[in-house]
């Protein structure tokens, strides 16, 4: 999937240089918001994967609200700094406070920053996927337990034998144990 990047920047030239640098760095879907009016509404509408904003931009507090409203980890915000207050903000960024710095707007500096932001984005995506997988696994185990109980009762066998039967059926039919268990539970529901 193409990564969408939103640049919040009032200075048109600066925004254009950012866009150029990003285009050189990779194939991204890039949007620029130059107008502070309606920022909240427009960010919500665009739903970008990454927001690039100057660390000293007053609109940061608006992003803060958006981050609180969704999960703060889902939308990485990368900061860039190339103004006079750099020494001050650099320490903040290096401390891991606000993610990433783009020194000036040199393309060779933008790339690592984006890579880092994307890596973080992917990490959280993966964490979410893993969480989802864990949830599914739990669900499946419950279904398998119920299927085993049905078999034990209907055929008077013990738990181990019930599971062996489920597994053998699954292998014979080239299906997953969880799917067979699900079918059995459904069928049992129809019969009672």
């Amino acid at each position: 999937m193409q990564l969408s990047i939103l640049i919040v920047e009032r200075d048109k030239d600066r925004a254009l240089r950012m866009v150029d640098a990003l285009r050189e760095a990779g194939d991204y879907q890039i949007e620029v918001i130059a107008e502070e009016n309606g920022l909240r509404r427009r960010i919500a509408a665009i739903a970008p994967d990454i927001v690039l904003i100057d660390i000293a931009d007053p609109s940061r507090d608006v992003l803060e609200e958006l981050a609180l409203a969704s999960s703060p980890l889902e939308r990485p915000v990368a900061m860039f700094v190339d103004r006079s207050d750099e020494p001050l903000t650099r320490a903040a960024i290096e401390a891991g406070v606000s993610a990433y710095v783009v020194d000036g707007l040199r393309p060779d500096r933008i790339k690592p920053v984006l890579d880092a932001a994307i890596a973080r984005f992917n990490l959280f995506q993966r964490m979410r996927a893993e969480l989802e997988a864990t949830k599914t696994a739990l669900e499946e185990r419950k279904v398998i337990d119920r299927a085993k109980a049905i078999l034990m009762k209907a055929r008077g066998i013990d738990e181990e034998a019930a599971y062996a039967l489920l597994r053998k059926t699954a292998m014979d039919q080239k299906r997953r144990v969880a799917d067979i268990a699900q079918q059995l539970v459904m069928a049992a529901g129809l019969l009672t």
């Binding site: 000293a56 931009d57 007053p58 507090d61 803060e64 903000t89 320490a91 290096e94 401390a95 406070v97």
Partner: peptide
């Protein structure tokens, strides 16, 4: 005295020990 433009910036700089 350093004039800041957002509360998030204030929080970050303080947390990082920049101020």
């Amino acid at each position: 005295l350093i004039r800041l433009s957002s509360w998030a910036q204030s929080r970050d700089l303080l947390g990082a020990g920049s101020i």
